[in-house]
Nucleic acid binder design. Structure first.
Lengths: 340, 340
DNA sequence: CTGTTAGCGCGTTCAT
DNA sequence: ATGAACGCGCTAACAG
């Protein structure tokens, strides 16, 4: 018969009490070094690993963090995830993935799963519940589950968030385009109602207006679009028949498709039309021409969001502690913009 | 004072026993519809969600699956992850991410975390523990933790795995190259000691040999290389001074860097040198020229691996049940190979 | 169909 | 520095 290797078993073998065994793993400074070594040896011998489950029962901590993404196609989220995972695992926390693929139904299911699992906190990236007036975030807050938003923020709610200075990013892009004399500008973007996107737009606009300019066209692609190529095709005329110098793509992920689209139309980049992106996803540098873009430090955003979350989790005292972090955007000049 | 909302609380409010409440959530067919509705209403009212933690204590099931990746830069793993997550979440299982970044130390830590957390099963993608004679997999098997390998297999161990027919993939690539009369062939690959890679190589070689040919050079890049560009630069002479027709890149991720490298050298693709890849990662179609490659159905591999794992988890009876799945590779002709 | 009860494996008092 | 004992929230087994 299989004997079960639990804390009692170990305590008997080591001739100590279960409490002492427990201390070895949790507050090992409280136990005499000799006793500790003896116990550790026994644990090793029987390959004992204390159950986090049982421990969660007592402590109300699961050491899990939820990571919610709106899709797993845009590599932006993968980089975010990487940053968060790396911070978490260093602290013995692990990430649980929730990919909603922009489905409201899935979000409902995830909320349920998250609460049932007593996950310690949650990192929300992208647009979860965005359509329904931040429904997802509201539910999380209502239950007082520690959470942090990445690359997204909501006004009037007490949620920490990590973003890039998007307004400034917009300015950076516009400044550069004017500097290289690209004045006839088209814009392609995800939904402007997403605040961070709107901020980019505002920054960009500000510079244009200061120079007595405005965009020639503005194309909005729904974030949850399943086919960006098709969206571009729909707007073919706008894009091609306005004699523009440059297109400001407010997301590199869109730029991926845009370059493809333009090539298909035999438009040379940047000779015929320049393109500038936003995000600097990993693949932007592999494009041809290499994409000039406004970089966000995506990895760092993920990393930081996890850091903030964990610090909020451990400080039960001040549950309302809020931390917002705004990172600097950076212009990365590559080859997709023509200097006129 | 906060009253705690647990199964007892609900059972009192609903005037039933805790067991009945439990049944509503687990085996609801056993409880009378009226009783069930009454109970559900009470749960709703108090916003009661049964704790998966407590349930795990009794059932020894955590409803978590570990997903181990060797790195989070190659998008291949993101697609795998997506496939697995989608299957899992449909079944109310969730994925816990373990990214080793090819570090043996991290793998040790992960093993510990996995066992402590009593995770139900594990999907291993990539090379975890590969260097140390499949150390990681051995440890998992030793503890009889259900597991499945994706895009990797080991001989002589009783582990289910999901792979593509790599040998055939190699043949497909070679057949095509000969068909378009690209006979002077260079090969760039990750470590040949990885079995799936070796299989690709063998298939490819077979065709070459049948045609009295052999590769002009073979460059091996360590999977855990932190700088693929640098590896290519090291081999600059081999690549440029052999008057080759084409390079077979046994991974699209390498091809990303190779195209970049060749452009840097002012080599035109495919006019000067053709390139064919393997994997068909999402970004291959955005490259310029669009990458001709041997496609694996990466999403499906992830999806299937999760399906197999879950089926093995539920069938405690036949713990040794083994399932290996081999998917078909597919030649995707795009623009990176010159028809001579 | 429903209720009673024991115990899953651990951590935390409160003792000593 | 260590031990005894309770209980975290739930479900399985059994009884009715």
């Amino acid at each position: 018969m299989e004997e079960k290797i639990d804390i009692y078993f170990i305590s008997k073998k080591a001739k100590v009490s279960p409490a002492t065994v427990s201390r070895v793993f949790n507050r090992s400074e409280l136990v005499n070094e000799k006793t500790r070594n003896k116990i550790l040896k026994v644990c090793e011998k029987y390959n004992y690993k204390p159950s986090v489950i049982a421990s969660s029962m007592r402590t109300n901590k699961t050491k899990y963090i939820g990571f919610v993404v709106p899709n797993m196609t845009n590599p932006f989220f993968f980089e975010l995830l990487k940053g968060a995972e790396e911070y978490a695992s260093k602290e013995d926390y692990y990430l649980v993935i929730f990919n909603s693929e922009n489905s409201y139904e899935k979000e409902l299911i995830f909320l349920d799963a998250i609460f049932k699992r007593r996950i310690d906190g949650i990192i929300i990236s992208g647009i979860a519940g965005g359509k329904k007036d931040n429904f997802f975030v509201r539910e999380i807050l209502k239950k007082k589950l520690p959470c942090v938003l990445v690359d997204r923020y909501v006004e009037g709610m007490n949620v920490p968030s990590v973003i890039t200075d998007n307004f400034k990013g917009g300015i950076l892009a516009a400044d550069y385009l004017l500097e290289i004399k690209n004045k006839r500008i088209g814009i392609i973007t995800f939904d402007l109602k997403i605040k961070i996107i709107m901020d980019r737009y505002k920054g960009f606009k500000k510079v244009l207006e200061e120079n007595g300019l405005q965009e020639i066209f503005l194309i909005e692609i729904p974030v949850d679009s399943k086919d960006i190529s098709e969206e571009l095709t729909k707007n073919k005329n706008k894009i091609l028949e306005n004699d523009i110098d440059v297109i400001f793509c407010m997301s590199d992920f869109i730029a991926l498709y845009l370059l493809e689209f333009l090539k298909e139309m035999n438009i040379r980049i940047p000779q015929d039309i320049s393109v500038i992106g936003f995000d600097d996803i990993y693949y932007s540098k592999f494009l041809n021409p290499r994409l000039t873009t406004i970089a966000q430090d995506i990895y760092k955003m993920g990393n930081l969001s996890c850091e903030i979350l964990l610090s909020n989790i451990s400080e039960n005292k001040n549950a309302d502690k809020l931390e917002n972090r705004i990172l600097e955007p950076k212009l990365i000049i590559r080859e997709s913009c023509l200097i006129k």
